[in-house]
Nucleic acid binder design. Sequence first.
DNA 1: TTCCTAGTTTACCGATCGGTATAGGAGAAC
DNA 2: GTTCTCCTATACCGATCGGTAAACTAGGAA
Lengths: 186, 186
Amino acid sequence: MSASKRDELVQKALKAFYRGGFHAMGMDALAKETGVSKTAMYKHFRTKEDLILAVLRLRDEQFRNWLIRRVEALAESPRGRLLAVFDALGEWFAEPEYRSCMFIKASSEYQDRAHPIHSAAAEHKRLLLGYFEKLAREAGAKEPEELSRRILLIKEGAIVMAHLGDREAVAKSARGAAEDILAAAL
Amino acid sequence: MSASKRDELVQKALKAFYRGGFHAMGMDALAKETGVSKTAMYKHFRTKEDLILAVLRLRDEQFRNWLIRRVEALAESPRGRLLAVFDALGEWFAEPEYRSCMFIKASSEYQDRAHPIHSAAAEHKRLLLGYFEKLAREAGAKEPEELSRRILLIKEGAIVMAHLGDREAVAKSARGAAEDILAAAL
DNA sequence: TTCCTAGTTTACCGATCGGTATAGGAGAAC
DNA sequence: GTTCTCCTATACCGATCGGTAAACTAGGAA
């Protein structure tokens, strides 16, 4: 089992599902887009669902690594980093390929809370919340748990609205909202 | 063309699409769920897309009417009403049938900004923004446009997170975040 | 050389997709 | 009673769905 080919498939499938949606992207179309034959895909993954779960695992790792790296490059203090989250988001929104959050879309298409895909989406948000909570604690917040929930709320709202409206204005408003919330919480 | 039968179809289709998703809910399954024959459905709507657009029009009207009615019942002052938005949301989240926002899901499945379904979702958010802006203006906000954007941001974030995590905690945090933002904006 | 592995192409499976055609039934209007 | 409207049920269309079977090829190891 060539691990590199498998990873290549997951990476290309990630892009394809991100652009096309999970139900709308069929396995035949996926084979054509990735350049990997259907037979090979089913050698690596028993079902489409398994492939999607692998895609989500990759995306979770990819996104959180990117966000943390970016935030740490943009600001030094914990407080500055909580705000830098929204500068990083602004950069993401400015990419022409931006199409909302893969996990929000996954939970939209697989709504049952018991479904593994829905759970994977929830887990991603939980991990993000953990990072924000760490920053909030370092920043000396009175209630770091509550502050991190509010930061996450604004982040998710920004992602949704950036997909539907003026992306630049959304990033700015989100940062402004975060400033107000930080001012009240520290 | 019996208008009442048509409306009945749209109402039942709304529930079916809300539970099942747009791509996942096929026209045969829809006929079974609504009790309306496929032939009759295609007498009223030329395509599935047309039916979905009618569903979204109904949902927009339904949701905004409900929200405005609820907000006006919960508080008298414009400031209080901006906060009551999140009490109303909390009531919505508590319903067992709650499954996120139909328009967020629509824009997740139809991502192209030029697609009529995506546009309908964007329009719904624009109308909500208008309502919040009116309240912000009445409340005497320095920048009502900016304040309304921030309120909408928190509302959308709350809807997403309520779909993925602890709904009660989300509603509370959203209200708290809105309080901070109102305090800074008025 | 021989064998195994990892991948390919092509074709196929039953089911479902969105959409249509046909025939007929129930009820109101004339 | 007849016609028109609105609906039904059933069957069908070609295309695509997720998934599988079979035969083949290229490369590396024994």
